[in-house]
């Protein structure tokens, strides 16, 4: 574990990615704990649509609310959605992929064809469809994003699982009479941790984007709550008058995605034994 963090810090993009992600997580935690500079809903009527000042580092919006505070809350909200949806997708996807690979035959065919159908739609379209049926809201956007990313995890897990399944140590386990659940968790899952970690990190980046997209369209987080996509949507009409309203949330989205992608790339390098030599 210690060696893992050391090689992560030695990896150039890993260092940057890890720093960005860590910063976001701290911001998200602070905002959820209520430690923002101002109450994000408090309206400073006199100071509406101000640019950056000493009192309001990122200015104020059209209702006079502090942009920095709202941004922090927004990051917290986006992270909540991203982490829960990716977590959900990873669990369901892994379960499906693992059982598909292990039991094969009809179950494998059924699961994988369903995943093929889901993957055939663009992610945002599928999420829209889901929300159209269930109705908008934070919880539904979590479900929608999880729904959209499940097939990716299923595929990522099924491939390696199929190859690990044929390895001798799995045969050895079966020869001892180990139970299926033991083999699936100890032998298959443990060897899938590396590809899964990478996939989770990358999926976090995409789901951050999808969440912003859904909120932007008014289908995710509902006002007066704040989220990055919602802040962008609010700022569009004031773009020329108050560009900071657009720039800061947009930067936040971009930087977040960049952070996760850099971290994902680094993890792939570190966790893939074939790449290890190149990095070291």
């Amino acid at each position: 574990m210690k060696a893992f963090f050391q090689s992560l810090l030695r990896h150039p993009s890993g260092r940057i990615g890890a720093a960005i992600v860590l910063l976001y997580i701290i911001v998200a935690l602070l905002s959820q704990a209520g430690l923002t500079p101002y109450d994000p809903l408090k309206q400073f009527r006199i100071e509406r649509l101000q640019g950056a000042t000493l009192a309001h580092w990122m200015g104020t919006d059209m209702f006079g609310r502090d942009v920095l505070s709202r941004l922090m809350i927004g990051i917290g909200q986006s992270f909540l959605v991203a982490f829960s949806s990716v977590g959900l997708a990873a669990v369901i996807g892994t379960l499906l992929g693992l059982t598909a690979a292990w039991f094969g035959h009809l179950w494998d065919g059924l699961v994988m064809r369903l995943m093929d159908v889901l993957l055939a739609f663009p992610a945002i379209l599928l999420a829209l469809l889901f929300i159209a049926v269930v109705g908008p809201g934070t919880f539904t956007s979590i479900l929608a994003i999880a729904f959209v990313y499940t097939p990716i995890f299923t595929r990522v897990v099924r491939g390696p699982a199929l190859s690990i399944k044929t390895r001798d140590f799995v045969d050895a386990a079966r020869s001892f009479g180990s139970s299926t659940s033991y083999i699936l968790t100890r032998h298959l899952m443990l060897n899938l941790v590396a590809p899964l970690t990478v996939q989770v990190t990358l999926a976090l980046a995409w789901s951050l984007l999808t969440e912003s997209g859904l909120s932007f369209l008014g289908l995710g987080t509902q006002p007066p709550n704040s989220s990055l996509g919602l802040m962008l949507a609010d700022s569009v009409n004031l773009m020329e008058m108050a560009p900071w309203l657009l720039i800061f949330p947009a930067l936040a989205v971009m930087l977040g995605i960049l952070g996760f992608n850099l971290l994902g790339d680094a993890l792939r390098d570190i966790l893939d034994p074939r790449m290890r030599r190149v990095v070291a």
């Binding site: 001798d168 045969d171 020869s175 001892f176 032998h187 443990l190 060897n191 941790v193």
Partner: peptide, 18 residues
């Protein structure tokens, strides 16, 4: 199980993560 087995390839028959 009264019958146990030793496999041919010692590099493949031990789970590398355990």
């Amino acid at each position: 199980k009264p019958v146990q087995m030793v496999f041919q390839n010692p590099y493949a028959s031990l789970n590398p993560r355990l």
